[in-house]
């Protein structure tokens, strides 16, 4: 129901439903009530987010869900998040552009190579290669394990609720690519909400937020990766251990 409304709102914003009957289309079905049900007013701050992801990939779907949730929260907090082809505020994608991006760029794709210097305004939502290796090294006797940033069977700290929302929305489990996509958009929306007057890239290292992993997540200023717990998974796709970094204030 909400998706339908959002879809229609998107059309409204694009002018496709301009004219009589558009509001009636929005109001055709009963839906959860909200105080500000009218289209965003000009005073509502607008945040463009560029999603350079195939919408049918897991990462793309995660990002879409993140954007839908951001839009719902934004309606309550008088902030409008819009998907845009390009954005000077923030972009989510697989491969960072070769030149310095105009705004923040969050990659959900391949990790920065070891020893590679982090680039200005480019950050990775995944754990570092080094930390993933350290996690695996806890079980040197096992060669059946691999490391993931997220798993569909996680339950604690609201992970079950997030997994459930994603699987209901897309009829597929949330894997680490989907989580990264969702997390990247959540990062951007939190930046916009908590630092409304700042440039996103200037504040990203100050941000501390929840990713349904039981600890505050924050970017490492040295590696530009998100400091976070990872999960060791066996060949049967069963989570055998959570490995969390030590958190320092």
């Amino acid at each position: 129901m909400t998706n339908r409304r959002d879809f229609l709102r998107g059309l409204l914003a694009a002018g496709a439903l301009a004219g009589a009957g558009a509001e009636e289309a929005l109001a055709a079905k009963p839906r959860p009530r909200q105080r500000s049900e009218s289209p965003p007013t000009p005073s509502m701050r607008q945040i463009p987010i560029a999603l350079r992801l195939d919408p049918e990939t897991a990462a793309g779907r995660g990002a879409r869900m993140g954007l839908e949730e951001a839009q719902r929260a934004g309606e309550l907090l008088k902030l409008q998040f819009q998907e845009a082809p390009t954005s000077d505020y923030a972009t989510v994608g697989l491969v960072p552009p070769k030149q310095e991006p105009p705004g923040l760029f969050l990659t959900v794709g391949p990790l920065l190579k070891q020893g590679e210097e982090p680039r200005p305004r480019v950050y990775s939502v995944s754990a570092t290669l080094e930390f993933r290796r350290q996690a695996l090294a806890r079980h040197p006797d096992r060669n059946d394990l691999h490391v993931v940033d997220w798993h569909q069977d996680l339950k604690k700290f609201g992970a079950d609720a997030l997994n459930l929302r994603f699987s209901r929305r897309f009829e597929q489990p949330m894997d680490e690519a989907a989580w990264r996509g969702w997390m990247a958009v959540k990062l951007i929306t939190e930046l916009a909400l908590r630092y409304p007057d700042a440039v996103a890239a200037d504040k990203i290292e100050e941000l501390s937020l929840d990713g349904h992993k039981g600890m505050p997540l924050r970017f490492d200023p040295r590696s530009h990766h998100l400091i976070q717990p990872v999960y060791l998974v066996d060949a049967g796709e069963k989570v055998v251990e959570e490995v969390a970094p030590e958190w320092t204030e």
Binding site: R33, Q34, R35, E69, R72, A73, L76, L77, G158, A161, L162, K186, E190, L193, D210, H212
Partner: peptide
């Protein structure tokens, strides 16, 4: 997830 607190007015039943 949205880190919000919404305030419902019990008279008007609106946020």
């Amino acid at each position: 997830t949205s880190n919000t607190v919404s305030v419902i007015d019990t008279r008007s039943l609106e946020v």
